[in-house]
Design a protein around this nucleic acid. Structure first.
Lengths: 302, 302
DNA sequence: TTCTTCCCTTTGTCCTGGACATTTTCGTCA
DNA sequence: TGACGAAAATGTCCAGGACAAAGGGAAGAA
């Protein structure tokens, strides 16, 4: 048994493309073209799975599947990102270069050196500026690199893991302060990016809020229960750019309906940046705005 | 728009039951019985989603869906767990009680007190015993409580998040040592429990191994790439008890085929405890066994 | 020319109902 | 009592149809 191939469930797991999509692509575009086993069930060879993952990545970068699936494999690898490069809003070119150096460390798979360099930046900049001027733009850079295929999934995972460790460590060492308001931080199911939550938590905690980190992927009904049990003042959700945009307004409305009106609902992260207003929900397009929102909340409490 | 209800995708997200299962249950058992919108699509009211989650939990505890779905809602809540209670293999009753106290803190939603208590235990026991005698049994206790419905999802999330923070903090403060072997720690897609990985990492790191934490949910092909790029000696996967057991042998075989033979493949966690042998894969039924495996590996390298 | 509006195309998701492998349960026989 | 085989229970897969939402492009207005 050298290479038994992947069944449709395994491909769904590995690519993130639903079974429905895999079947409808096959029907419409003729790709993927899996073999069949004795029972007529699809068996995907590894190279097709590989190509599907590439297609998925290019789609996340703005390409259309119809074109991609009609393109020969060799040309796919050469495709440039279609989305315009977000201008690196970093103070000065040298800062941008420094961030690039940090990514180089990840790409050299030198975790220890990366951690050390980040520790230094933290000590130099202080927590607020570290989060805003290092972690946040770095996350965007990694996202951009991912879209262009300049970074591997496992490199992105390593980056995320090491960065989250650092942030958690810092948060753990913050002194207790006013401890108000009480803010629950979490994300909805299928949204597994927790770095944005940690950045927000760091800033909130520094401002003296009581943060209740529930990790990622909380069912909506559970979020509502948690808000009650913890007597939370605010629930903060994070949506990454990778999260399907069109689902977000519905999710927010649904959760808004489940929460008492007295409880604030805030949503942040790259996924909400280009979102229309949602009634009763505070959209945080940036980390600065998170801090402002906290100040505004305190003002309203008189 | 008070309560628009959940569509089938939202229910899949919130309950973890696949669309196929939701539809086939409706066809066979008459539950769930969602309303339909104008377009004939299923709209699940919140109370049915709630019941589905309860059913799912009882199924994880060993019940059969056919019976559960034929049982009136009121009786469901009274159902006791069917699986025999795993005997608490803790040294002495007092230790068991202490662990119970820790869980009480979580159930009282007092994160700060929990963290403090855990810090104290860590200082008292030292890292190895803390992991083996506190964190591991505590995780099992939480799992048991979850199966019996004595703990909410969000409480379990809080427990996980706070405990992971503590472990990561400790790992971060460990001194660099021999830095060999190089061990990648991660989990497969759909396996999002990372606490077991952290426990293993803590022990490995303490023994002087170079740990490369990639977080959870790595596609198999990416794990193979990562092993090459990091020149890993060993890949360690973690499977929780909640992970569908029957998928595990196939996954391990598949990954084994993707990895060079020189690279060791270890699998641990509650999910592998009752698993048959898999060729070329080291199954770690306990944390002690992890340490033994590391020693054995070093012996083999002469 | 540039911007808005409308329409066609593309694409993802949902539907029905059938089939079957696998696991569990249960009755029967040694 | 224990082994074994039949029957029931259960999850996953399949085909192919339908439709709404988003994207893209053409036509008309400023």
């Amino acid at each position: 048994m050298i290479n038994p191939g992947f069944n449709i469930a395994a491909v769904e797991r590995d690519t993130g493309l639903s079974k429905d999509v895999l079947r409808v692509w096959e029907r419409r575009y003729g790709f993927p073209a899996p073999a069949r086993d004795d029972h007529g069930e699809r068996i995907y060879p590894a190279d097709q799975v590989e190509r599907l993952r590439l297609v998925k990545r290019l789609m996340d970068a703005g390409h259309r599947p119809g074109k991609l699936l009609a393109t020969p494999s060799e040309e796919l690898n050469a495709l440039a990102p279609r989305r315009p490069q977000p201008a690196l809003a970093v103070a000065g070119a040298s800062a941008g270069e420094e961030l690039g150096d940090l990514i180089s460390l990840i790409k050299r798979h030198d975790g220890a050196a990366y951690q050390e360099a980040m520790q230094q930046r933290l000590a130099r900049q202080g927590l607020v500026r570290f989060v805003q001027d290092t972690v946040a733009p770095l996350t965007r850079l990694v996202g951009a690199a991912w879209e262009e295929g300049r970074i591997e999934v496992f490199e992105e995972h390593l980056f995320t893991e090491l960065t989250m460790r650092l942030l958690r460590q810092v948060i753990g060492s913050l002194p207790g302060g006013r401890r108000s308001p009480r803010i629950i931080l979490t994300s909805v199911p299928d949204e597994l990016h927790g770095l944005g939550l940690l950045m927000a938590e760091a800033l909130f905690a520094l401002e003296g809020a009581e943060c209740i980190p529930l990790g990622t992927q909380m069912p909506l009904l559970e979020i509502a229960s948690a808000a009650g049990a913890h007597r939370a003042d605010i629930v903060t959700l994070s949506f990454s750019v990778a999260f399907p945009q069109r689902q977000i307004p519905g999710l927010l409305q649904q959760l808004r309906a489940l929460l008492p009106t007295a409880v604030g609902l805030w949503a942040g992260g790259g996924g909400v940046r280009r979102l229309p207003e949602v009634a009763g929900v505070e959209l945080l397009a940036s980390l600065e705005q998170s801090i402002d929102a906290l100040a505004a909340w305190r003002g309203k409490q008189t």
